[in-house]
């Protein structure tokens, strides 16, 4: 089902690994989402200046500016950025990490496509319904 098509949801994917970045983008685009990609926190912030994604998919381990630093930067912006964050992590302590960066959901690598899609869908619903 291509939920994304009903009301277009834009996802900002911040992930340094090229292969994973491509596959996640392909999955989401096939589901009808619009996907913006950044290879690290710096590029991610740049994109935020120019675009307005509805959901952020955030990796932690990145060079130049990692996921923690990115989230901190977001939190410091004025006006406040209220975009829901989905954390992508290889760490078993995903819930703790999610809390640390203010994420509302997390995905533990490796994940199934269904998991990825349904998590993004939920986040999109929340974002677009204004809750």
């Amino acid at each position: 089902m291509q939920r994304g098509k009903l009301v277009e949801c834009t996802v900002l994917l911040v992930e340094d690994d090229a292969s994973l970045r491509q596959t996640i983008r392909d999955v989401l685009e096939l589901e009808g989402y619009r996907v913006l990609t950044a290879a690290d926190g710096v590029d991610g912030l740049d994109l935020l200046d120019r675009e307005e994604p509805n959901v952020i998919l955030l990796d932690l381990m990145m060079p130049r500016m990692n996921g923690y630093q990115f989230a901190e930067s977001l939190a410091g912006r004025k006006p406040a950025v209220a975009i829901p964050i989905i954390l992508l992590t290889a760490d078993a302590r995903a819930p703790d990490k999610a809390q640390q960066v203010g994420a509302s959901a997390w995905l533990h690598k490796p994940f199934e496509i269904d998991e990825l899609v349904s998590t993004v869908e939920r986040a999109c619903d929340d974002a677009l319904s204004g809750s």
Binding site: L20, D26, L30, A90, I113
Partner: peptide
Amino acid sequence: SHEMRTPLAAIRASAEL
């Protein structure tokens, strides 16, 4: 184990696709 997860995630997603 931690390090392997990102490549595995890419492989899994690609295979599912």
